[in-house]
């Protein structure tokens, strides 16, 4: 089965396939939520190594809890909560290491991060990602090259990669963004 086929499956479908031992479904699930998971420790301001530790721990927790999340229509909320808890836990451990002070994760009031805002922003960002995925085809490729590509390709390079004239990049981008706005509105994104 092709990777694109897996992309079209819902979360419960992928989880159900994972529980039957389908590694491709697991890969699709991890790829779908990779940025969501990684964004939380980044927003917490963790260094790369700590952000990687959080990412690994959350992947492992997802695997451990697959039975529990199998009926969730969207597991993004579960992942945001779990990743946030992992970040808070790591922060407490690091505080303990450096100051010797002990703190309770539940009682900790972090003045630098509003957890509710973090949850909203992280979930909204996931909605945008999913809307871009839904665009599919040429629009998804163009948006990817224009906004996600770390090499920031020029219009000439985009033209070469996509096989479209430079002059049509602007109008295509406008049409794709209009389409993206429509998808986001349909998903209740304001």
């Amino acid at each position: 089965m092709s990777a694109s086929k897996y992309k079209s499956y819902s979360d419960p479908e992928l989880v159900s396939m994972c529980l039957k031992g389908d590694g491709h479904a697991w890969e699709a699930l991890i790829r779908r939520y990779r940025r969501l998971i990684f964004s939380v420790p980044v927003r917490f301001g963790f260094e790369d190594a700590d952000a990687a530790d959080v990412f690994q721990a959350v992947c492992l927790k997802l695997l451990e809890h697959l039975h529990e999340v199998k009926d969730d229509r969207r597991i993004s909320a579960w992942l945001v909560t779990t990743t946030t808890r992992q970040c808070l836990h790591l922060r407490v451990l690091k505080t303990r290491e450096t100051t010797g002070e002990d703190e309770n994760v539940e009682d900790r009031q972090d003045s630098s991060i509003n957890l509710e805002d973090l949850r909203l922003v992280t979930e909204e960002q996931q909605s945008i990602r999913e809307a871009v995925e839904e665009l599919g085809g040429r629009c998804q490729s163009l948006i990817g090259l224009l906004y996600f590509d770390s090499t920031s390709p020029t219009y000439d390079e985009i033209s070469g990669q996509m096989g479209i004239p430079v002059s049509s990049i602007g109008p295509t981008r406008a049409r794709c963004l209009e389409k993206l706005r429509t998808i986001l509105r349909r998903r209740g994104f304001s």
Partner: peptide, 30 residues
């Protein structure tokens, strides 16, 4: 706002080897 959110998202891409670690985690049960 949409352009900012799209560009910001690129900074949340985990390193390729880290992503692969997450993918490989499933291997023992397949």
């Amino acid at each position: 706002s949409l352009a900012v959110r799209l560009r910001e998202d690129a900074s949340f891409e985990p390193p390729a080897e880290l992503l692969q670690w997450g993918v490989n985690l499933f291997q023992p049960i397949i």
